[in-house]
Nucleic acid binder design. Sequence first.
DNA 1: CCTTAAACCATGTAAATACATAATTAACCT
DNA 2: AGGTTAATTATGTATTTACATGGTTTAAGG
Lengths: 243, 243
Amino acid sequence: MKLAIDHKSPIPLHIQAEQLLRELIKDPVYQAGKLLPNEVELAKKLAISRTTLRQAINKLVYEELLIRKKGFGTKVANSRISSKSMNWLSFSQEMKARGITVKNYELHVSWVFPDESTASFFDISTEKKIVKMERLRGSSDNPFVYFISYFHPRIGLTGEEDFKRPLYEMLEEEYSTIANLSKEEISALEANKFIAGKLEIETGSPVLFRKRFVYDQGERPMEYNLGYYKAESFVYTVESRRT
Amino acid sequence: MKLAIDHKSPIPLHIQAEQLLRELIKDPVYQAGKLLPNEVELAKKLAISRTTLRQAINKLVYEELLIRKKGFGTKVANSRISSKSMNWLSFSQEMKARGITVKNYELHVSWVFPDESTASFFDISTEKKIVKMERLRGSSDNPFVYFISYFHPRIGLTGEEDFKRPLYEMLEEEYSTIANLSKEEISALEANKFIAGKLEIETGSPVLFRKRFVYDQGERPMEYNLGYYKAESFVYTVESRRT
DNA sequence: CCTTAAACCATGTAAATACATAATTAACCT
DNA sequence: AGGTTAATTATGTATTTACATGGTTTAAGG
């Protein structure tokens, strides 16, 4: 674990401090509501200004990972909002846990120009082609989900990879890219003609639609994933606890 | 609307600025991704330092109400309704934060026999009546969610309570019952005739359906909640981190 | 011995300043 | 006209400085 801050790095100091703090609070020593060193001391130790350190702490406070108390100190929050971390993101593993064997109905990999929103999430130009993966998956009886994934060019995918392997395992082993954070948006949609065809339902039928924004170790965008789930066959579960 | 900042007020300047901005972006003029005045100008106009102003803007950026772009400016995010772990559980508070005034279109409280699944969750007999609350809520323009709540008899509700108050606040203050854990199941459904009528959509249109199992301090079931959200107007967001 | 006041500690608030960097626009040169 | 370069604009990063304020601990006083 990196305990110091590199002033020569192009990564902003407050980002480095933030990452450092995230690592720090994972340490068992800090788990049970323990106090952090005070800001003035810690800033001196890290050789950054108190303002910069506060900038980093602020983010974690906002995420409710840290709790500040005036005149007392900053402590590590005990219970975090767990969203039943999906084991972790892997579809096939999740299905396996439910006793469903995943069948791949279609798999298609291509190089395409990203649309506006994808390019914006990846922070790249719409003129630069990226790898797109489409997958139709389901149980042994019938397909019930259609996935579209876009991958950031930084990863360096060729499009020739073995996408039959569990995706995140492959990305980790072959490209040292680890999914670290996922932001998801879940909504209900009417199936358009294309999706309806894939999922073998009627156009206009409801589908559960999930956008997933996946970030790597450095909080950099790595995957943009769209999932269209046949309505009856999928339930998304979330568990959250008061903090 | 207050447009100025009171330097003599005991309320911190950055809090005042934050509130002012929240009001400001509600203004129709700012609705469609419009740019805010630049930080240096705005700070001068409000007679506060840029640092303080940035502190205020930061909060709204964290909440994704504003989007900053270096060298370009700060624009208002096209606010769609999302639920960032629901703040915590309260619908009206979450809407308030988004600048949407919640309107209650219908409110109906009754004593009913629980169905099988409800009785099973509460671990009570189907012969024992419980309090059921139905609510149709939405923005000032139109309803977009229909809630049904069942409450565990242990709480001791009479059905005469003031359900116009924030629910969890009322339960905490009047009955010392605190929501502590929530398990949610989200799926997509076709609106049946009843729901379609309430939400003013066509039968068969997709709705986002959420079941919520709420537990109290002692992890005992306290509320069973069903929510039917009009499809276009609701996005459920989840953020999860690898552990 | 208990209450109250003072001292202390750590975070909270606020400003002024300086320079870096990304996005846009304008000017410039082929 | 088209592409490259430079200037402009507005946010991003970082430091130093100063004082306020809410808790905690200690010390004083009845």
